[in-house]
C-alpha cells in the first residue's frame, strides 16, 4: 500500500504561488469577492505563508507553501463528531463533504489552519462557471473542505494504469500543485517505496516537518533552505 507524501524544497521554492492558483483551478475552489476576502473568508487549500523576522536591514523572510500536511496523526479527524473526515489507507486525510455538518471543530483543531469552510454558497460569476473541473465536486455551503492531494487524479491514474495492466509508477499520480511548480521545488510520491524520489529526499539532513513538535506526523515534508557553501573551487 502506498503512503503518499510530498516534499517541498524550500531552497528551490520561489514563493511564486503558482501552486496556490493551480490548486484552486483544479479543485473548483471559488474565489471570494473582495469584500469577503477582506473579512477573511478566503478559501485556499494551499497557501504560501510568509514569516518576517528581524528588523531592517537585518531582516529575513521565510515563505512556505502550506498544503494540508496529511498528518499520520491528524488532530482534525479525531475531533470530527460525525466521521466526516478520516484518513485513507494510503494516508490521505479525506473529507466527506456530504456528511460534514459544518461544526468547524476540525478547522479549529488543525494547528496548520489548513481547513476551509464554505461560508456561502460557492459563487462562480458569469462564464467563470464554465471553467469548473468536472472531476471535483463543487462543495455546497456550510461544509468544511480541504486539500485532498488531488484524490481524483489518483483515481484516474489508477484507472488508466489498470487499463494498461501495470502497477502505479512514480509520476503517474501527481497533484496539481506539484505538477505546475516552475522551480521544481515540490516532489510527490510514495513514502513507503524506498526508491522513490520523495523517500530519498526525506532522508536528507535538510528534511524537517512543520510544527513536528505537535506530534502530528505530517506527510508533507520540507527541506530547509540550505545555504551557499562559499566559493569552493570546482571539485577535481
Amino acid at each position: 500500500m502506498a503512503r503518499w507524501g510530498m516534499v517541498i524544497d524550500l531552497a528551490k521554492c520561489t514563493a511564486c504561488q503558482a501552486c496556490v492558483v493551480a490548486c484552486q483551478a483544479e479543485n473548483n475552489v471559488p474565489c471570494v469577492e473582495p469584500e469577503e476576502a477582506e473579512r477573511g473568508r478566503i478559501l485556499s487549500w494551499l497557501a504560501v505563508v510568509a514569516e518576517v523576522q528581524g528588523s531592517y536591514p537585518r531582516v529575513s523572510m521565510t515563505t512556505r507553501p502550506l498544503p494540508c500536511m496529511h498528518c499520520d496523526s491528524p488532530p482534525c479527524i479525531r475531533v470530527c463528531p460525525v466521521q466526516a473526515t478520516g484518513i485513507t489507507p494510503e494516508g490521505i486525510v479525506r473529507q466527506t463533504f456530504a456528511r460534514c455538518i459544518g461544526c468547524r471543530y476540525c478547522t479549529n483543531a488543525c494547528p496548520y489552519t489548513r481547513r476551509m469552510f464554505n461560508w456561502y454558497r460557492p459563487e462562480f460569476r458569469g462564464e467563470l462557471q464554465l471553467a469548473l473541473n468536472p472531476d471535483v465536486t463543487v462543495r455546497p455551503k456550510g461544509v468544511v473542505e480541504k486539500c485532498t492531494l488531488c484524490h481524483h487524479r489518483l483515481m484516474q491514474a489508477k484507472e488508466s494504469v489498470r487499463a494498461e495492466g501495470r502497477p502505479l509508477a512514480e509520476g503517474d499520480y501527481v497533484p496539481a500543485c506539484v505538477e505546475i511548480c516552475p522551480a521544481g521545488a515540490m516532489y510527490f510520491g510514495d513514502l513507503e517505496d524506498p526508491e522513490s524520489r520523495v523517500a530519498q529526499l526525506v532522508r536528507s539532513p535538510r528534511a524537517f516537518r512543520y510544527l513536528e513538535e505537535l506530534g502530528t506526523e505530517p506527510k508533507v515534508i520540507f527541506l530547509s533552505q540550505g545555504e551557499w557553501a562559499g566559493g569552493k573551487q570546482e571539485p577535481r
Binding site: E36, R39, G40, R41, I42, G102, R104, T107, N108, T113, M116, F117, N118, W119, Y120, R121, K141, G142
Partner: peptide, 12 residues
C-alpha cells in the same frame, strides 16, 4: 450561510 456571521478564517 454562515457568512452572515462575523466568523472568518481562522476565527471559525
Amino acid at each position: 450561510g454562515l457568512g452572515t456571521t462575523g466568523l472568518n478564517v481562522p476565527v471559525y
